[in-house]
């Protein structure tokens, strides 16, 4: 009897494990299935919200993001001065998190198909024991200017203290390299095939 039950117990255990793992798999990307992303030709990148202690973190990440996005040649990105002019002319009170009607108004003024907003959540050095490394965490939203709807949203975290940093010491990678990696990861999610 014992020999018959053992394989059944194992099989049940495996099924329970698989079910719990699939339930825990949460994607950090939202993509509107009704949106035709091919229609987005021109975008404006609004100032990013800065939740870090570093004063210019949002400016730095936004600059890297704009240059990377332009260099993909997937879309045309308006210069930051033009976006600033649009924000001032349309009198948007909160450019880092504009309401839908402001996005529509700004889109009409700047003649862009979408605007991008972002939040820099972490930027700088983290410490754990004797180890230290740079970390960055950002999230981005793509908002269509026709309706003011969020059509894509994603986040990315790169850097931090790795197992090898703890074991062997070392200060991780430079902040600019980590920033580029985080932005590249976002583009992979944005421009790559939709997650199944």
């Amino acid at each position: 009897m014992k020999t018959v039950l053992a394989p059944v117990t194992w099989a049940l255990g495996l099924v329970v494990c698989a079910a719990s793992m699939s339930a825990a798999q949460v994607s950090d990307v939202y993509r509107d299935p009704r949106m035709d992303f091919g229609t987005i030709q021109t975008v404006a990148v609004l100032p990013f919200a800065n939740l870090t202690r570093e004063q210019v973190a949002a400016d730095r990440v936004r600059d890297v993001f704009i240059n990377k996005l332009l260099s993909t040649e997937a879309v045309y990105v308006l210069p930051v001065g033009e976006v600033g002019r649009g924000v001032a002319k349309t009198e948007i009170a909160a450019p880092t998190a504009p309401p839908a009607e402001d996005v529509v108004k700004l889109g009409a003024f700047l003649k862009v198909d979408a605007v991008i907003t972002g939040v820099v959540r972490e930027y700088g050095e983290v410490r754990s024991g004797n180890s230290a490394a740079n970390v960055i965490s950002i999230s981005i939203q793509l908002i269509e200017t026709g309706t003011g709807r969020v059509v894509w949203s994603g986040s990315s975290t790169r850097g931090g203290i790795s197992f090898w940093d703890r074991l062997l010491g070392g200060g991780g990678q430079p902040l600019n390299a980590v920033t580029e990696q985080a932005v590249d990861a976002l583009f992979d999610k944005l421009l790559g095939p939709p997650a199944k």
Binding site: P79, V80, G81, E82, G84
Partner: peptide, 24 residues
């Protein structure tokens, strides 16, 4: 220029100075 150059400013400056390009 508050924060950077806008396209309108670049156009204006370029026209007055007869510049083909404006760098900022």
């Amino acid at each position: 220029m508050d924060g950077g150059i806008s396209v309108a400013d670049a156009d204006l400056v370029g026209t007055i100075l007869e510049a083909d390009f404006v760098l900022a």
